[in-house]
């Protein structure tokens, strides 16, 4: 089925909240999934599988314990959502060192968080796992290596580093530039329905009282 990018952002945002994540994290999750879809990467399916498998109401357990050393979670695996927001917060720190994580689920989603961050011209970022690497630069995205690794369920390690903007030969070799497409995005209907169910948890049940007082529309509006 087809959706607008705005629909993807809103459904993913509410789904995160419906699964117990804080609003501020959910805001970025929605934008991250939107960003990935704008580059033709099926984030909705990945995202639905992630939220379906790990209980994100225990989000702190899936977050890095510390920003020092190799990032690891208290739980068995890191969440790409909690890693994603921290990667955005550590863009400045990455000028000093490469960030490395322990085992992380659905690594593609973490890249989406960096993508939605407004990367200015001084910020070129490479994120790597398995046999694939993504380079993010301004509003461009390049994929290197085995594209089938983009959607792996988990990876034992992910690294993220800042690259020099000047004199980098990265774009002259095997990188494939992803087309940016603003418009209808194709999403899997089952994954979409699953996210909509999570999103539904954020709504309050309608009652006659809320219909009248909550919306303040008890008066005749047909005149």
């Amino acid at each position: 089925m087809k959706c607008s990018l705005n629909e993807i952002e809103l459904n993913c945002r509410k789904a995160a909240r419906g699964c117990g994540l804080p609003w501020g994290v959910a805001d970025e999750a929605g934008k991250a999934m939107r960003w990935l879809h704008a580059f033709g990467l099926d984030a909705v399916t990945e995202y639905a599988m992630l939220l379906g498998k790990y209980d994100h109401s225990r989000y702190l357990e899936y977050a890095p314990l510390s920003l020092e050393g190799v990032w690891q979670a208290r739980a068995e695996i890191l969440s790409p959502i909690m890693v994603g927001v921290s990667l955005c917060d550590c863009l400045e720190m990455m000028t000093q060192r490469t960030i490395e994580t322990a085992e992380i689920a659905r690594p593609l989603l973490a890249a989406g968080f960096l993508g939605q961050t407004a990367l200015d011209k001084e910020q070129k970022v490479r994120i790597k796992w398995g046999n694939v690497a993504l380079v993010l630069y301004r509003d461009e995205l390049y994929v290197f290596g085995k594209t089938e690794d983009l959607t792996i369920a988990s990876t034992t390690s992910l690294t993220c580093e800042r690259l020099s903007v000047v004199g980098d030969s990265m774009f002259e070799d095997s990188g494939v530039r992803q087309e940016l497409h603003i418009g209808d995005a194709v999403v899997d209907p089952d994954a979409w329905a699953q996210l909509s169910e999570y999103a539904y948890r954020t709504y309050v049940e309608a009652t006659e009282a809320s219909r009248l007082s909550g919306a303040g529309a008890g008066l005749n509006d047909n005149d």
Binding site: P22, W23, V25, D27, Y59, P64, M82, S86, D89, M93
Partner: peptide, 11 residues
Amino acid sequence: AKFLLSHPQHR
């Protein structure tokens, strides 16, 4: 960033 790691509810 360090505060937000342990307090994502304030993000």
